[in-house]
Amino acid sequence: MSSVMQNNTYVSPKGPWAKLFLALFGVGILYGSYRIYQNATAFTVGLDYFSEDFQTYWMTLLYIQLPVLFGSGAAIVGWIWHTRDRHLDKLAPAEELRRYFVVLAQIMAFAVIAYLTASPFTEADAAWHQVTVRDTDFTPTHIVLFYFAIPMFIISGVVAFAYARTRLPQFANRLSLPFAVVVAGPIMIMPNLGLNEWGHTFFYAEELFAAPIHWGFVLLGWATFAAGGLVVQILTRVVELTKVVSVSEGAESSRAVAVGVSV
């Protein structure tokens, strides 16, 4: 690695900022465009599933986005797996630290998607269903939320997980339970749709958003509470990788930085 210096010391790598901003820009464009589209067409051609307009303007989207998202998710994860590091035992610490920054950047992208999905797009669904008559399981807010935003959420989580699994020794040799739980939560939201739609169809007629029928989603959202364990796992290793080994006066001053307070 270029960052490795003599005597096994290295300078700090940087986070993949350019790629991260590019990815976030892409996510912003995608979610933003979808939002504009939703705003413009939901109340005009999105109110009646059985109308031709609905089939044209909304169901077409569903039919496009599901295979595209599934295909691209599988392709990205396949690529991550295919290009996995087969010599993790020889991984230089500087590179390992860089990869930790990469995985944190991926989790950041996951967090951005989590926010967009769980807040503006979820509450768009709330606002929509409280002012219109629910007709089928496919409404303009469901098509965006459940069949676009949540698959994106799943993909972003799985990508970070797969990256760590294939490129970071501690995540490759063992399985991080908190990381698995954090990623499994969004995945389980998809099958939980079964409960939601079954309930709305057969016994739940009102659109009270805090209704028990929605609590399955909450429970799965709580999977992110395991993020604490993941943070501890990552930081524990980052602490090891950010030790200063030079015997210069830097070692002393590093302690003051490490404490972060005046002692």
Binding site: S33, I36, Y37, N39, A40, T41, F43, T44, V45, L47, D48, Y49, F50, S51, Y57, L61, T132, V133, R134, D135, T136
Partner: peptide, 19 residues
């Protein structure tokens, strides 16, 4: 899709009854 947003007339069907 964005073009459609701009060009589509702003009429609102209320509905759900056919479901």
């Amino acid at each position: 899709l964005l073009l459609l947003c701009v060009t589509y007339p702003a009429t609102s069907m209320a509905h759900g009854e056919r479901a």
